[in-house]
Design a protein around this nucleic acid. Sequence first.
DNA 1: CTTGCCTGAACAATCGATTTATCATGACCA
DNA 2: TGGTCATGATAAATCGATTGTTCAGGCAAG
Lengths: 359, 359
Amino acid sequence: MQGRSKEQPHRPRRQRGGVRLADVAAAAQVSAPLASRVLNADPNVRATPETKARVLEAAEQLGYVPNIAAKTLRQQRTGLLGLVVHNLSSPIYLDLLQGARTEAAANNYFLVLGDVDELLTDDEAYRIFINGKRVDGLIVQGGHGEFDQRIAEIARALPTVIVNAPPKSTDTVAPLVAPDEVAATRMLTEHLLALGHARIGLISGPHDSPTNLLREQGVRDALAEAGHTLRDEDTAHLTWSAEAGRAGLRTLAGRWENTRDRPTALIGGNSLIGIGMLRAAAELDIAVPGDLSIAAVHDTWISEHLVPSLTTVSLPLREMGETAVRLLLTDTPRTQRTIISDPPPRLHARASTAIAREH
Amino acid sequence: MQGRSKEQPHRPRRQRGGVRLADVAAAAQVSAPLASRVLNADPNVRATPETKARVLEAAEQLGYVPNIAAKTLRQQRTGLLGLVVHNLSSPIYLDLLQGARTEAAANNYFLVLGDVDELLTDDEAYRIFINGKRVDGLIVQGGHGEFDQRIAEIARALPTVIVNAPPKSTDTVAPLVAPDEVAATRMLTEHLLALGHARIGLISGPHDSPTNLLREQGVRDALAEAGHTLRDEDTAHLTWSAEAGRAGLRTLAGRWENTRDRPTALIGGNSLIGIGMLRAAAELDIAVPGDLSIAAVHDTWISEHLVPSLTTVSLPLREMGETAVRLLLTDTPRTQRTIISDPPPRLHARASTAIAREH
DNA sequence: CTTGCCTGAACAATCGATTTATCATGACCA
DNA sequence: TGGTCATGATAAATCGATTGTTCAGGCAAG
């Protein structure tokens, strides 16, 4: 047992890199370029069926997987899309993420996560993510003030699609994918009107945010058609959080001096606000839906598990994510604005809304 | 205004690729390799301070960002980590994701999302993600039966860290990062015991799942120390969902024939189950915490907004994500098991638990 | 019998950064 | 003056796949 005492006498030559195209080509007794063309089903390739079969066979045999870095370098295409999220803890946009992820996967793309705050504060991260050619395109959420201002700059460096809310600036810097916000709140309002509510209020996000303007519009439209109006004293505009919903309802309720001069139903600008409103109602001993009906925009997994379960309208977030990816992969004119109207917003009537009681 | 009428008379030679290292080197009047070494702060580089300054200056001036594909090809390192998630809609693991994302970013890494179901069903996606050298390492959630069986295979192909729950198989295939599950439920139980509860039940996930075994152990330990036991008729083991929590409480309540022979407090195996339990209690007119105290594992953003707000114990999910990334970046022996005990689980006492009432 | 065309395939260049090996220059010492 | 050595920098090879160009051979037409 003396000879060959070395422990690693003949490890296969290529240990790290796995199987290369050259290995496949060698096994199939063809050149690397030909193997590449066969494996990529190049329509212009001219090879006998036997040759093709040999190449495919060899690739299968060796478990060949193309090296993505090499492919990327040559083709200037990473197979990655960036998704810049604002607040991942919010349940609202997970569906959007899921939709984007699924559609990306269907095209053999993967998603890389970026964070709004990080990109704003960490220059290094920004450079790597935006300028480093790390991704082929970017999906960003509009409507986040400070970040909106940099979207134009980003869109110049990289194909970009904005989802959800258009930046405030008037010039269109990138294609937009959005839900039919107006239809959504209109639907909620009409639901409440049908239940006999006449005085309906709104607790929503910042008054001048693009999203709020649209959602508020939907409420106003539906009310106007029914001959009613949205009164200033029945609205509160804070942020998009549960805490804001709670504070908003407390503020409104503070104005209610008697049981007659007050709204019988309130709409929450998003599901977090709706949750906060339910909470505030419980704290203030306002019976829902007995004294007050509550409905909100966005249907999330939790809506039906709340007590009482929350009436909502669901936006096609998943489809928005899918569409955003599709637009990204088909380079779209930056002026294009896609409103997802199929499927339309859908009403989920639950226990938090009921027929208006006569005061 | 006739001359120069062409709109794009002299676009710079390199339009697509941006600034290359060669451009920087040329501007600084040095060779590309030297520029590379200076920019990467190679300790072995020998260059005069003036030369270094010139290179750095030129890079800054031109806005040079290294081409990641080229770097990756040469270094066999992508700068990406894969995070394989099971159900992104669940709020529970978002903190883990956030922790991982933050720590990755701090090391100039980015996260790519994979989906358990997709990797199980889509062979192409699996090959690209796992075998394609698309990522340098992988964080996977253990405890998802079918997927667990492939973790060993994955771990052979790629540096891997398992978070949360160990696969059932006894051999350790990759380092593990987990919270102190036993301490968490022990803490909840002790909180209830301190409130005077003596008979405490448990509604949790599948009985033989690794996570449940540990959580149940914590309950049993604390009860035993106080001279009590966990009765079989006070437990239900279904899935980890809100629906299961609801069904679990309904099952248990169905056994309660009089007000004396029943538990005064129940622990939910996770926050979803806790939410379902609150819902079932409301439906069954069981006052919480009057008739029944309810507490659950996992503190999420919603816990404090529920009615009543839910007592929970929070696990250090964020830190787990951070640690998982760190382990991945420092190639760790696969036998290592890291229990995050700093910070320890933390109790959030809220309105759903109260002093036990004498029956 | 040669020219020309088509088929089947190989050759060579390219993507951009890194890294190993090599070369020039000047200082210093014998 | 010649030789050694440290210093400063360059040349060339490499990572692996793709793509434009070229080449050899076979067959048909002139």
